[in-house]
Design a protein around this nucleic acid. Structure first.
Lengths: 174, 174
DNA sequence: CAGATCTTTGCGGATTTCGCAGAAGTCACG
DNA sequence: CGTGACTTCTGCGAAATCCGCAAAGATCTG
């Protein structure tokens, strides 16, 4: 309680205007937006007025910034669960090695609905993809018939999930 | 619109009572709770009344069930972001091989604040852990000084993230 | 300084949330 | 079969929140 961010308001606001973008084309966030995100990482349903009090803005201003962050795709407010609890029995991380255009393969994986998470990496895999399936047959099908069938996929290695131990969404809150 | 779940209400409600638990000690979810979660996976701030209309319950009943799901830890409603946008420059997936008690190591990893995600797996790694850091020094420190220092860790392999391509939270919504 | 653009604020009215008491359904047990 | 303990659902009024909008304030450009 009382972790206000009143310090140098005018300075923050100077930074906040003019949505500059960094190299990646991702919007640059100022301290106030970060503080808002932090509030919503603790509780995605926290009222705008409460957030406003915490970050030093009016309710309407918070609402508008939240809406913009959502529209820009910077953040999303969603319910997250352990898939195992919700009826998806089989999950796996798949390491993929690619010859040729890595990004094209990553895009192809992104298009698959069973693929939850795709990241391009440095190391002995070019891509890591997390897969959520209903049962073993489904998983086998996705890995062998769909992923390995993509032209350019040299090899894959699978890590079937046995037990999810941690899943946090508290970046910046620590 | 109009995807109501009115079909066999009394049957659903029969299943819903008596919170039975499966082997893992995780609560068993009925069709209505799943439908509620699904609604909140689309929009974590959707009003209870709107959810109630979609799943065939009163506003108060939805509110009660959501609260219970949150209390039980079955789901959480949070803002999720791409860490790179929020100032965490270095992320990596780390595969860990363990001798002895795998779960003990997994618990130790879970206790580290930089570790976002921990899962025990079958395959050539015993554990996969996702790490979120501010810079290279920080990442190096976590991997070499903290993870490899854990007694029982036989070896690790790191996959530094280059680009996050997909991150969804739509289980059951497809 | 004027103009264009963007952000914040303040404020009603509509909507939603919240707490609670009562009704209804379920289960265990004699 | 009925009774009590328990859980879940419903309805409702009061309080809080959300929402749209017009005006005010900032920032940047030229």
């Amino acid at each position: 309680m009382h972790s206000e961010v009143v310090a140098s308001r005018s300075a923050e606001q100077r930074d906040s205007s003019r949505e500059s973008r960094n190299g990646n084309g991702t919007p640059q966030l100022d301290a106030v937006s970060l503080a808002i995100i932090q509030q919503l990482q603790e509780d995605g349903r926290r009222p705008y007025a409460a957030i406003g009090k915490a970050v030093g803005l009016s309710e309407a201003a918070v609402r508008q910034r939240v809406q913009k962050l959502l529209d820009q795709g910077v953040m999303q407010i969603v319910a997250v669960t352990d898939p195992l609890t919700v009826g998806f029995r089989r999950q796996a991380m798949v390491g993929v090695n690619v010859e040729g255009d890595v990004e094209a393969i990553a895009d192809a994986l992104t298009d698959m609905s069973e693929v939850e998470y795709v990241v391009m990496t440095a190391g002995s895999f070019d891509i890591l993809a997390e897969i959520v399936c209903e049962d073993d047959d489904h998983l086998l099908d996705v890995i062998n018939k769909r992923i390995r069938a993509l032209p350019g996929v040299r090899s894959t290695e699978s890590f079937v999930y046995l037990k999810l131990k941690k899943q946090t969404y508290m970046w910046g809150t620590r």
